[in-house]
Design a protein around this nucleic acid. Structure first.
Lengths: 211, 211
DNA sequence: TAGATTGTTAATCGATTAACAATC
DNA sequence: TAGATTGTTAATCGATTAACAATC
């Protein structure tokens, strides 16, 4: 295995997609697959697939290909999906609630432990057995519970303040849905989902479909 | 201006971010900005900023820099934000509802016209004055209304079928939130938001923060 | 063993950065 | 005009693809 730390972001971004296709193959009881066959399904070149996987070690076997289940296990481990993550959601509007339900039903391993909002109408609400707490209780909650991920579903104006609180409260990663770029100490992982940016890209591509 | 059609995806992905920072500057009544100053804010190199913008034409002026408002207008036009887009949402669970509200309140220009679901409990519900219709009415609706964008918030199993219907119904773009890769005729634009992939990347970065 | 397919090096391609002449 | 800063070409860097020897 190569030294970690020099694996490019582009490679990491592809790993979840490998996982999705491997899951399909497992469902179909496919035991082995060559980089060439996988290329046909997933759309990356066979060469790229082999390069990607070899960043982490030799998971394949010459003349045989890759064992589907074993590869799935390996990529899961690389991504850290063999662990569980405790999460809090800050901002419990539609999006916050959607993410709570989504992770609850579909994402074993990512567990929403606490939900927080400033809106008194939302405080007290129960979403999948998690009660929405008042935002003022966040600091205390983070002190008393070891939380891995903070999910920011607030508006732009509050997002940086929330991020600061989350970092003080020792989260290891932030999943940011607010439409802005957060300033984050670099020992905290940050993943942005900028829906607005995404929609604007779509608009561009709608107007340049023939390119 | 260069020939369109050879502008890289990386450039397009950066445009919405330029727009966000330009909006901040407009709010602060900043009239002009140099690539160097903008670089300090946005985090791209000054060189990259000038390269990016020159893909579309000479928006700046030597010795002066860029006019903030004018640049904002130009990038908006490039992205097609000077137009309006009629949208339908398929799948009106939490996420579909969240997106309806989000675009309703924050995204002038992107208008949700119709919402559809198979679940009889959701059909009839009103979200921002849009009534959720039965999914079986989608084909007819698309025939009678000229819709630009279809937003897929269904589960994986239904997503491809929905996409096919949307394409038959002549949408120009699809915003896909289902955790799978759709097969799309290439005159339809496609933008994926794979939340699950995003969360998995975050997990990776949490476990490799020191790299 | 012969055939298949990986792991890995080398070649290519594309994107980013640096440099600087043009020009406001 | 002198100074500032763009537009644009050239250099560098990184990521993808091609090729092939290693090996199961």
């Amino acid at each position: 295995m190569k030294e970690s730390g020099k694996i490019s972001k582009a490679v990491i971004k592809r790993l979840p997609r490998y996982l999705r296709y491997l899951e399909e193959l497992i469902k179909k009881d496919v035991d082995r697959i060559s980089s060439n066959e996988l290329s046909g399904l997933i759309g990356y070149t066979a060469s790229q697939i082999r390069q990607d996987l070899n960043n982490f070690g030799g998971f394949g076997q010459q003349g045989y290909g890759y064992n589907v289940k074993a590869l799935h296990v390996e990529i899961s481990k690389i991504l850290g999906l063999d662990q569980t993550y405790k999460m809090v959601i800050i901002g419990c509007g539609n999006l916050g609630q959607a993410l709570a339900n989504y992770t609850h039903y579909y994402k074993a391993g990512f567990i929403v432990c606490g939900m927080f909002d400033v809106n008194p109408r939302l405080v007290g609400l129960r979403i999948n057995d998690i009660e929405v707490m008042d935002y003022s209780l966040l600091d205390e909650y983070l002190e008393q519970n070891s939380i891995d991920i903070g999910i920011i579903c607030t508006n732009k104006g509050s997002a940086q303040e929330v991020a600061d609180k989350l970092i003080l409260g020792k989260v290891r990663g932030i999943w940011n849905f607010a439409p802005m770029d957060l300033t984050i100490s670099d020992d905290v992982a940050l993943e942005n989902v900028h829906l607005s940016d995404s929609l604007q890209s779509l608009a561009y591509h709608i107007n340049h479909r023939d390119d």
